[in-house]
Nucleic acid binder design. Structure first.
Lengths: 168, 168
DNA sequence: TATTGTTATACTCTATAACTATA
DNA sequence: TATAGTTATAGAGTATAACAATA
């Protein structure tokens, strides 16, 4: 889904002749940072947590997207520490939403899979949670919706791009 | 706590009464939701937390922007419960970053103000934190930067708009 | 010895409920 | 009695450190 090819690998940022022509200034970045933090807070609260927590849903979505994954691999992709993923998955395995099969390649590992029940649940929850956002988004002007839509891939890129945390 | 408003609306997610002229479809909204959650996670981690936490910085920025505020007012604007704001502010007052002056209008209230030290600190931190985001943003193409820039006000709108959580 | 997953522990952010002081 | 703020407690999400089993 993320098109890494879209990233402009244009010469190192050490190019003084190009003071980042398309770049955002610090004030704009601050606004983006605060907006993302606050919107996330809003979405997390609105999620209600009746069924799955945000971290659980995110993990499920990741499993669904990338198929069977080892726990460590899943943790890396979600960019959390392994113990965090253990805790996130625990209620999911207990509830039969994900399965843990022994990794035939490595006796220490498990392959985390999405069960049919898990697949059904995330499909339902996804719709429910997006509905909250949808009610807000429906009030946006066409121009605002357009702007938001165009920014989604960029936000995904920023979110997925490695190199943020001193990981590894 | 949260009335299952978020969950219950699943059935009528596509309210025909809402024209949804410029509306985004559920798949796009899901991507936006996950991207916001994950980007926030990235930014929170990258912040390091050596000085101020994300919630503290957000509160400081709010105080800076809106001048002296009463605690409850601040909590409302940040859309958190009053006790959460108490906890957020405690280290800030202890550290001399914000001041609490008695509200001359109401003996029960305080006016939360930004001290000079607080102002200096957030200016510095703001720069540091934005720098992290900046390094990523600098690699965006002009088109991507443009898209992100255009979306900032929309994200702010979604984040600030009331009506998300069932806030009594 | 190195790696994978787990358990133990701790800290932040958030919430609700119960309490104090003031209106 | 109602409201502003505080304290107490709990749960989610994250982390690091120490451990067991396996490579």
């Amino acid at each position: 889904m993320t098109e890494p090819s879209a990233v402009r690998t244009a010469g190192d940022a050490s190019d003084p002749a190009e003071p980042a022509y398309g770049a955002l200034d610090p004030a704009e970045l601050t606004r983006l940072r605060l907006a993302v933090a606050r919107l996330n807070r809003r979405l997390t609260q609105a999620a209600g947590g009746q069924d799955l927590t945000a971290a659980q849903l995110s993990a499920l979505a990741r499993i669904e997207q990338h198929g069977p994954l080892r726990l460590g691999e899943l943790a890396t992709r979600e960019q959390v520490a392994a113990p965090s993923m253990v805790r996130t998955l625990a209620p999911l395995t207990a509830g039969g939403l994900v399965g843990k099969e022994p990794d035939p390649q490595d006796g220490r590992s498990w392959l985390i899979t999405l069960t049919p029940a898990g697949g059904e649940l995330i499909a339902r929850l996804r719709q429910e949670r997006s509905a909250v956002l949808s009610r807000r988004a429906a009030r946006l002007s066409p121009e605002q919706s357009e702007a938001l839509l165009a920014a989604i891939p960029v936000l995904e890129l920023l979110a997925e791009e490695p190199g943020w945390a001193p990981r590894a």
